[in-house]
């Protein structure tokens, strides 16, 4: 079997706040191979962005990785010094953020910002680096790249800025690209362009991609396997086809039913999940979804469900007591997952 490029094991991330420490991501485990794309889907506050920021170790002063391990290409990221981490960031792992408007520095030209990165990691001469930057801009479909490279970010449209961000992220040929809601701030037609571009570049470079989105449509377009997150935990994990054909967790099912489909004839009521996501300071005991779940039982209220493996599936796992029987049959394996 191929080696995993990235292994995240029982990650727990907490933030220090005025009201004490708050655990925002809990027990997140997944693996990613070279060239594979994993999608992380969930609503705001579910911890999907924090998961990606902890891989980059960009949690700021208040955030810390409390437990768990992040192994990237054989190195343990949680143990690295800041200086070592800086060599990995932008070089081996790079990231595209949601806001192309705010993630470029407005007082430096596009070229200036790209060259800084290329210069830092690729050890090229000035003229080589410039030629390379222009080549990268052309690759992401920026017209008149020779002129655009000397422009400032405000001259570019949102779609163009996101292309520049992608060009920057890919210029050091990273092994892993983290795309945190890369198209959320863009119009649908521009979103389609950016997704096409990412697919094309993925094919050429075999980069592993972690794509984070609240939009199941984007996940279905891009991902090979999917993590569904709710209130800081992974509630379901499966390959993309299994997840969409046979979702198990009541939250995943609810999420899928609440999107208005374009291809369906629907004049009836939309399905909606009642209530709202629980607050981080007041996580319910037991299953974190039980207050909004129509199948909730006594057990769900009091006991935390573990991530159970569905019998006979290829790594389809779900954090729900409804699938308990199937768990008992697959003895042994699932037991390791039980972390109370």
């Amino acid at each position: 079997m191929e080696n995993n490029l990235l292994e995240v094991d029982k990650l727990q991330v907490a933030f220090r706040t005025d009201k004490g420490e708050v655990v925002s991501v809990d027990e997140v485990t997944f693996q990613l191979k070279q060239g594979e794309t994993i999608g992380i889907v969930g609503e705001s506050g579910c911890g999907k962005s924090v998961t990606s920021l902890s891989i980059m170790r960009l949690l700021g002063r208040t955030g810390l990785i409390k437990k768990g391990a992040i192994s990237f290409n054989g190195r343990e990221l949680t143990q690295l010094e800041e200086a070592q981490m800086r060599e990995i960031r932008g070089n081996e792992i790079s990231m595209i953020f949601q806001e192309p408007m705010t993630s470029l520095n407005p007082v430096f030209s596009i070229g200036n910002q790209m060259l800084e990165l290329i210069h830092l990691h690729m050890k090229m001469s000035k003229s080589e680096a410039r030629a390379y930057a222009i080549e990268m801009l052309k690759k992401v479909g920026i017209p008149r790249a020779e002129q655009i490279i000397d422009e400032y970010p405000h001259k570019l449209s949102g779609g163009m800025r996101q292309r520049v961000m992608i060009a920057m992220a890919l210029s050091c040929k990273p092994r892993l690209l983290i795309a945190d809601e890369p198209t959320t701030a863009l119009d649908v037609t521009i979103q389609a362009q950016i997704l096409e571009l990412m697919k094309k570049l993925r094919q050429e470079s075999q980069t592993a991609i972690m794509i984070i989105s609240h939009d199941l449509g984007i996940i279905a377009e891009m991902a090979d396997k999917v993590l569904v997150m709710y209130a800081g935990q992974v509630v379901e994990e499966a390959d993309v086809f299994t997840l969409f054909d046979d979702p198990k967790h009541p939250y995943t099912v609810g999420l899928m039913e609440s999107i208005p489909h374009l291809e369906h004839d629907s004049q009836q009521k939309l399905f909606s999940i009642p209530g709202t996501v629980p607050h981080l300071h007041a996580m319910p005991k037991g299953c974190r979804f039980h207050q909004r779940c129509q199948h909730a039982t006594e057990q769900c209220v009091t006991q935390k469900p573990p991530l159970l493996t569905i019998q006979g599936s290829n790594g389809h796992r779900v954090r729900c007591w409804l699938y308990q029987e199937e768990e008992q049959v697959v003895s042994g394996y699932g037991q390791n997952e039980v972390i109370a």
Binding site: S157, V188, Q191, I259, L262
Partner: peptide, 25 residues
Amino acid sequence: ALLHAYPIPNPHLRNRERIVMEGDV
């Protein structure tokens, strides 16, 4: 083009024929 651009939450349709509009508004 707007209809084609909308991502469909069904992975079986990911390789469908569609027009991706070029350029910006």
